[in-house]
Design a protein around this nucleic acid. Structure first.
Lengths: 128, 128
DNA sequence: AGCCATAGGGAAAAAATTTTCCCTGCCTGC
DNA sequence: GCAGGCAGGGAAAATTTTTTCCCTATGGCT
């Protein structure tokens, strides 16, 4: 296990939210589960560009935070499903809003970054 | 300059949003500017636990994305202020929502992570 | 000449995250 | 036997992000 060297400040709401859904793939995993893709192997197939190991790690993290919980069916072969807790459901609108804002502004951000030079500015410039 | 080895997928709204406000301190910087703390040195003082270098880098990134822009006053000593663009203003409600969600659930997440064991679960357990 | 403030960046170290590789175990089917 | 699917993790490498250290330049003050 990896041990942090610098303590996190989790008393701030912003930090908590970023921590929970800020991982590279966590929001996608949340989206998978929401769409009914609940089994690890199924999620792995959906996100074929991501290594299963990482998805497992993110799933575990989300489980630790209490956003999802694990149902282990006593079937053969082993069958596992991840479902949202109450708090897990409460994060869905937040994910939606992020998704929405990103989609509405991605072209702007793209183009701005393309055309960006240290001395160009969309508004006033070097006020005299 | 650092060059990425793995290209980013910025066609997804979620990725864009996380990229823009997901940095370790970017949301705080945005909050500073919103509260009227617009000069680099002033932001540095507000965020005294963060190295100025990082704040400068984040500011530059936010400027590249077109969320903020730089006003350079021809004064002595040099005077710089960062202000929101239209798109910058549009991200404020998103930040608010993250902050709000985090504050509402941080205790839960805290406690859950504390008491977490691989085989405890707040709901059903190991469905037969 | 010092030292203060302003704004800013290069280089490298440190830390954190992500990724790859390979292993455990169970069972099914061939 | 061997191969496949299932769920999962340890160790180390690779990548990315964050941090520290030190530098640029301007001008004011003593």
């Amino acid at each position: 296990m990896y041990e942090r060297k610098i303590p996190e400040l989790l008393d701030c709401g912003l930090a908590v939210s970023i921590k929970v859904i800020g991982g590279k793939w966590k929001a996608w995993i949340i989206d998978c589960i929401r769409r009914g893709v609940r089994r690890p192997s199924a999620i792995h197939k959906e996100m074929h560009e991501v290594a299963p190991r990482i998805i497992n790690m993110h799933l575990k993290e989300l489980e630790e935070y209490g956003l999802i919980y694990k149902k282990v069916y006593a079937e053969i072969p082993a069958r596992v499903e991840y479902c949202f807790t109450e708090v897990g459901y409460s994060v869905l609108p937040v994910v939606d809003i992020l998704e929405k804002w990103g989609n509405e502004h991605k072209e702007y951000i793209y183009q701005h970054k393309e055309g960006y030079q240290a001395d160009s500015c969309p508004f006033e410039r070097k006020t005299a």
